[in-house]
């Protein structure tokens, strides 16, 4: 069965003398939820930055749908369907909620200068469809009533949900979430859990997840990769990881 979406091998990122990521390998199949865990400073965010073109990896290969992407600029990789969120929320804070979602649809809207100037039929239709898509997502994440509010004025949990919705507007096939549950309360974390599963089952996308909340990770992951100090430590199903002595040692220290 060949349904590989992402294949990463030998990924290495060096910052001067610091080897932040050392020879990491990853594999994501279609419609899978894969988690990357590890202590703070292990290099998880750096892996994301390498995969999405924000850093040029020192070495290694990133194959997305059979095509090497590791040298492409960030916006090109994003257009191919690999879209990420950030550890710290990066909304367009002064713009309204719905504008945030429209910016993300830039490629799917009518960007022709003249048709926009004269509000042609095709322009209006594309705009209306864009707003319709945005409205659907806002309803799903419970933000419909805040559509015209400035994004920076939303509560933290709402901002996190909006950021995920904004990624979904680009119609990705691999969504990469960097600590999406950080700062959420238990109820919000449960909602997030539901949302991620729904993204996989209904929107048929794969999810690559960095997360510290072990209950969330162990509950929804198909497979888990553990990194420690930049090096891959273990990978396997949640059950295998939970009983792996190396992982326990890395997390709890040696007794």
């Amino acid at each position: 069965m060949d349904n590989k979406l992402l294949e990463v091998s030998g990924l290495t990122m060096r910052f001067g003398g610091l080897l932040a990521v050392n020879n990491v390998a990853l594999e994501v199949n279609e419609q899978e939820i894969i988690s990357v865990i590890g202590p703070n400073g292990a290099g998880k965010t750096t892996v994301f930055n390498c995969l999405t073109g924000f850093y040029k990896p020192t070495a290694g290969q990133v194959i997305y749908r059979g095509e090497p992407v590791q040298q492409l600029p960030g916006h090109v990789i994003s257009r191919k369907g690999m879209v990420r969120t950030f550890q710290h929320v990066r909304l367009f804070k002064d713009m309204t909620v719905v504008e945030n979602l429209l910016v993300a649809q830039h490629r799917h809207l009518n960007t022709n200068f003249l048709s926009g100037l004269f509000k042609t039929k095709s322009f209006k239709k594309a705009e209306a469809e864009g707003i319709e898509r945005a409205a659907n997502w806002l309803e799903r994440i419970g933000l419909a009533e805040f559509a015209n509010r400035q994004a920076g004025n939303l509560a933290y949990g709402q901002q996190r949900r909006l950021e995920i919705a904004r990624c979904m507007m680009t119609q990705p096939s691999l969504l990469m979430l960097d600590e999406p549950a950080a700062g959420l309360n238990p109820a919000e974390t449960d909602e997030l859990d539901e949302l991620i599963v729904e993204l996989r089952d209904q929107h048929k996308i794969s999810i690559l997840l960095i997360e510290h909340d072990m209950k969330l990770v162990m509950g929804i992951s198909d497979r888990i990769y553990v990194v420690n100090q930049g090096c891959p430590l273990a990978n396997g199903t949640p059950k295998e990881i939970q009983s792996n002595p190396d992982v326990i040692k890395a997390y709890l220290g040696e007794f």
Partner: peptide, 25 residues
């Protein structure tokens, strides 16, 4: 008109956060 077109929104988005813009393609 430009302000209400995708390009106008993209200008503002860029002013607010260039990295987020790139991550959205």
């Amino acid at each position: 008109r430009l302000l209400r077109m995708p390009i106008g929104r993209a200008w503002e988005a860029l002013r607010e956060d260039e990295i987020a813009c790139r991550s959205l393609g």
